[in-house]
Write a protein that binds this DNA or RNA. Structure first.
Lengths: 242, 242
DNA sequence: GAAATAGTGTCTTTGAGACAATATGCA
DNA sequence: TGCATATTGTCTCAAAGACACTATTTC
């Protein structure tokens, strides 16, 4: 940064959270109902303004996660998604929002009696289709968050962050199918994820109640990137005509 | 965002740029010399504080690109890299910096007589190795920018942004080799990039002066993502020194 | 001619995807 | 038993990488 002269900035810095989870095989995002203008009564991402007392951005994200979603921030995958600062995105003035993407395992309804009482899980389908209008540019932020999650499923063990600490390969497949919005062959998926080194660690001699044959249980391994990756099925079949 | 009470924020918002280019087969980044404290005389990324008069973040990035690098912002690939807001990253107070990654073709030395007079291209090797100390956390920002560029080479036509409007496949290979820091087989590379639909468009019946056989010329095609990708060699193995 | 760079062919290994076949539980 | 889910096997095709070989220029 340089040493420009500048007028005293009247900029407010906010932190907003895109918290994704899986409910009933569908991807959901946590939204709150706004209590005041602008966009009063409208659905919006949980978030808030930065505390100026030397609070770091990531620390602020964790604080909002705790305050608004009543989620234990520890053990939750959290990463910076992007910063949104269009001049007119907030009618109150210049608000720049740093957004974070959080991935959570299956979770109960937000607890009443807390800041999170106004919060609820919403299926992302209703948002991307425009059925559920959102405050500010939060629809764009959510779309970016979903795309980020989709992309990271290919190369990172992010899918395990949607699962319980111990899970079956079928559980894992449901994550991929829900986030990507596709159907995958269970047999090929099974072999593929098992072949990636350090992706899944078998939990010795365990099983689980279901209808058919019991499934082996796994935990997330130490891998940070997947080699080879789990490729997302072709969503753009285009060919060159030379 | 919610409706928290908050103390009036004393936050300064800056925009910093990681401008990468290729010079003599090595990746370089544009750095300026700081004129005032803190870090006076130290190398730093070009950038500056946001003008508060409803200037968008991307617009601010373009403005700094023009002011400090004297580069024509049009035709330059520019994307948001990340936002850095650690509480103590700037001794003057709370400065949150939104960073952008810019990719430029081979460029001349920064023009004298402008804001860019203090600017110079520096090899990234000297920075990641710690030989050239940087102001603030700019070493981390540059490292993140390089990693972003490396990753995007695999799945996007970003490499063409390092090239002139018309280029040979050999030129393109040099980009991949410089950014990834590896050696690639020219014959496999040749076939591979040509096989990706809409990546390269042949320029009809052109050639270029060199020592050996003339090479065909290409321009960037309309592809936004590469199917199949150009895979980065296993970087757990060898790296090239020099 | 030799040297240098551009471009093609071919072989081997590996992974992706389709899908048959087998295993093991529950009603 | 029959059904449902889990797991294994096999086949085909495409892609990655190694590398011999041909093509076209300058010297």
């Amino acid at each position: 940064m340089t040493d420009d002269t500048w007028s005293p900035p009247h900029i407010l810095l906010a932190v907003d959270l895109v918290i994704l989870t899986l409910r009933e095989t569908h991807l959901h995002v946590l939204l709150v109902e706004r209590g005041i203008e602008p966009y009063r009564g409208c659905a919006a991402l949980p978030g808030g303004f930065l505390h100026n007392d030397r609070e770091g951005l990531l620390a602020a994200a964790h604080r909002e996660l705790d305050e608004e979603a009543d989620l234990d921030a520890t053990q939750l995958h959290l990463e910076q998604l992007g910063t949104y600062g269009d001049a007119n995105r907030d009618p109150r003035g210049r608000v720049v929002s740093v957004t974070y993407l959080a991935i959570a395992p299956r979770l109960p309804e937000p607890t009443a009696g807390t800041d999170a009482a106004r919060a609820a899980w919403r299926p992302v389908d209703a948002i991307v289709s425009g059925e559920l209008p959102l405050a500010f540019d939060h629809d764009v932020i959510i779309a970016d968050g979903i795309e980020r999650a989709r992309s990271k499923l290919e190369h990172t063990p992010l899918a395990t962050a949607f699962c319980e600490p111990v899970f079956t390969i079928s559980d894992l497949q449901q994550v991929y199918e829900a986030v990507w919005g596709v159907d995958l062959d269970p047999r090929n998926f099974y072999r593929k994820v098992q072949k990636v080194p350090n992706f899944l660690l078998p939990v010795d001699a365990e099983r689980r109640v279901t209808k058919g044959r019991p499934a082996r249980l796994f935990t997330a391994g130490p891998a940070t990137t997947l080699h080879p990756p789990i490729p997302r099925p072709d969503h753009t079949a285009s060919r060159q005509g030379e």
